[in-house]
């Protein structure tokens, strides 16, 4: 197995196990009708949109890392593709359409 393979195997075990345990947690702990502590219910209920927003920032951080500001468009390709994705999604609400068009525009702009 190459270096990627070893790393992937570790990820498979670590992330796969944590994923499964999180899904199983209520069945392990609360099978008898008990509820999780209020603070966990609160944080758990708020976290998803915050983490997705963080991942959007993470993606743009990746663009900055790859030097998108010094390309001919100075980061315009990223902004235009993101704007198209958001606008299409607000308008039509079809995830596949928004993602495909946004990605296609980006590929066209950086080709």
């Amino acid at each position: 197995m190459n270096a990627n393979g070893h790393y992937l195997l570790g990820l498979l075990v670590a992330v796969g196990l944590v994923s499964y345990l999180l899904r199983a947690l209520p069945f392990i702990l609360f099978g008898s009708g008990r509820k999780p502590p209020a603070v966990i219910r609160y944080i758990g209920g708020q976290l998803a949109p915050a983490v997705i927003a963080m991942l959007v920032v993470y993606c743009f951080a990746d663009c900055l890392k790859n030097g998108c500001l010094s390309t001919p468009l100075h980061g315009g390709a990223e902004l235009a593709a993101a704007a198209l994705t958001i606008a299409l999604h607000l308008w039509r609400g079809n995830p596949l359409l928004s993602i495909a068009c946004g990605t296609a525009l980006y590929m066209y702009l950086v080709a």
């Binding site: 998803a48 949109p49 997705i52 927003a53 991942l55 959007v56 993606c59 743009f60 990223e78 593709a81 993101a82 994705t85 958001i86 999604h89 607000l90 609400g93 995830p95 928004s98 993602i99 946004g102 990605t103 980006y106 590929m107």
Partner: peptide, 14 residues
């Protein structure tokens, strides 16, 4: 960019 677009779409929906 599909990953960025995926997160943007999930965020808009949320």
């Amino acid at each position: 960019f599909a990953m960025t677009a995926l997160f943007l779409v999930i965020l808009v929906d949320q």
